[in-house]
Design a protein around this nucleic acid. Structure first.
Lengths: 224, 224
DNA sequence: GGTAGGTTACCGACCGGTAGGTAGCACTGG
DNA sequence: CCAGTGCTACCTACCGGTCGGTAACCTACC
């Protein structure tokens, strides 16, 4: 046992700081959280904290990037290779809602809430990462339309509606409320997707296949 | 009309302060805006400003209440007497999206963004006003279900999905983007409501309901 | 093995600046 | 006169950030 127990291994220590800071910023907002408080929560002095980070803005940037990593790992990675575009959307909805409701990643909530706090290049960098997800969703809707799985919709409006539904959840969800996150996810899938299936007379735009597979309605259960 | 020219008439002056403060707070966030800046924007000193308000928190509370007044006047008042629940929802969507996209009421945006900034009794008071709207939407969905206009859905999930779709808009909408607010409103109405029409049982329920023309695809909008 | 040199992680004290808020005086119109 | 309104001047507390210094460890070389 030379030094395995000791030595927090730099990167690990840094990530612990990010997570602690994220917890506070998530609770009190970026501008509402002082570096003093963050340092204290890390059981350090402010000067000690500044040994690890450059400044407050860069700290927020690092938190957001970490949050995007978590998102890509916990949502995108599970769905990006799914062939069926509708199944892809269903997976996104479920995993993304879980990411927001189970409070395991405060960083993600910060990305959602502090959408206009960063400026300049860091802001653009995060926006570019977000935009990739929007494009991914747009493409799923467009693909589903091309395959005649759903009636034609504007992919951009569809993508942002999709996002609004599931991300707004962070503003009202209470873990001890009457609705569980699974009920919300099922309810939202049931609300949006079945309504998009190419309806009776709607002719498939470019023929191809129009199997019109109706996905079983997952019981919405009691409203509770 | 005794002295309409001079004398800003108290209440009017106060409201001007609320609107100026709202503009700043909307741009920079509540914690990110100093009383100094607000006073300067009102062409006053800080002490002069404090003659009209009690403190910063009460100012935010007043702004939010004013925003709720505007909302009720510009959205609720137009729809609350509509008999058909689906028409009611359509009206909500259209008016509410306009309220968010046309930047005429910064107060409303502040209500959306600073959802957790207030605490204690003021927070609960605003939350109660918000909740009334949620109940109003839930009731519209429940009524539409009872009348067999739409297939059964969980009213709570439906109401919050509805809200998420239209309120999330404030985070990504750009007035000079490719999508106009009308296109977004039409697109979202088309996305959510037609898919709810009772497909299995009820016969075509659209008595007075328009065919709901699909919005033309407008290439891509811009993300946030 | 001992020690010199370098590095990492952290601290106490402090910087200039600004936060929210207030006391007291001066101007104004009625 | 006086109530309403706004000002100058000022308070204390705290902001983000930096300074010089140091305890503890790692490595290298003799």
């Amino acid at each position: 046992m030379t030094q395995s127990g000791r030595r927090p291994d730099e990167g690990e220590r840094y990530r612990a700081i990010l997570e602690t800071a994220a917890r506070l910023i998530c609770e009190r907002g970026y501008e509402g959280t002082s570096m003093q408080e963050i340092a204290a929560a890390c059981r350090m002095t402010k000067a000690g904290l500044y040994h690890h980070i450059q400044n407050k803005e860069q700290l927020l940037f690092a938190i957001m990037n970490y949050g995007m990593d978590v998102f890509e790992e916990q949502v995108l990675a599970h769905v990006q290779d799914v062939a069926d575009p509708l199944e892809r959307l269903r997976g996104c909805m479920r995993h993304n809602i879980h990411l927001v409701t189970r409070g395991c990643s405060k960083e993600v909530i910060i990305i959602l809430h502090e959408h206009a706090t960063l400026t300049g290049e860091p802001r653009e960098f995060i926006d570019r990462r977000k935009k990739r997800y929007v494009r991914f969703l747009e493409e799923a809707f467009a693909e589903a339309t091309r395959q005649g799985l759903i009636r034609p919709v504007d992919p951009t409006v569809a993508a942002f509606s999709f996002l609004g539904m599931i991300l707004w959840v962070y503003k009202w969800f209470k873990p001890d409320g009457r609705l569980t996150d699974d009920q919300i996810a099922d309810g939202m899938v049931d609300l949006l997707l079945p309504g998009l299936f190419a309806q009776a007379s709607a002719p498939a735009p470019d023929s191809g296949v129009a199997p019109l597979r109706v996905v079983p309605r997952t019981a919405t259960g009691d409203a509770s």
